[in-house]
């Protein structure tokens, strides 16, 4: 049995939206090097639409794949919809993650939210919805 699904390996081997957006108007960074995962998201939002998104990640295979998938899931979407991204959606789109790797999908969700909040604080817009609950990350403690 492989450690990861084909989807995870595909996004790990060929990560989408890797890099930096120089004129990003929303940037979020979560995680820390001590724990072994850091994700940084760059957003270019125009007319309330996520026109472009890029990421940089320090972390394991599932951290890189989760970042990549998360960017795919919000690209081209309205901010209000991107705000609703859940770790569950990221993990499901990857055809699942091993239980002890679910925290990678949580980190991806948090990185996106952090970038969106940065955008909103820059533009003075209000965050309209409550952050969704994390799914499957309870075992982490």
């Amino acid at each position: 049995m492989a450690l990861y699904s084909e989807k995870v390996m595909d996004h790990f081997r060929n990560p989408r939206n890797v890099g930096v957006i120089e004129d990003a108007n929303g940037i979020g960074e979560v995680g820390n090097a001590k724990c072994g995962d850091i994700m940084k998201m760059y957003l270019k939002i125009e007319d309330d639409i996520v026109k472009d998104v890029k990421f940089e990640t320090f972390g394991c295979g599932s951290a890189i794949a989760s970042s990549s998938m998360a960017t795919e899931l919000i690209k081209g979407k309205p901010v209000s919809e991107a705000m609703k991204l859940t770790n569950k959606a990221v993990a499901e789109a990857l055809d699942g993650l091993p239980a002890y790797k679910m925290h990678c999908s949580v980190l991806a969700e948090e990185a996106i939210r952090s970038a969106l909040e940065d955008y909103q604080s820059r533009t003075g817009e209000r965050i309209l919805c409550d952050p969704p609950a994390h799914i499957g990350a309870e075992e982490e403690e």
Partner: peptide, 14 residues
């Protein structure tokens, strides 16, 4: 420095 071991192993495995 600056990288994580598991992703290194997976890419080396490839």
């Amino acid at each position: 420095e600056g990288i994580e071991g598991e992703s290194l192993l997976l890419l080396l495995d490839d």
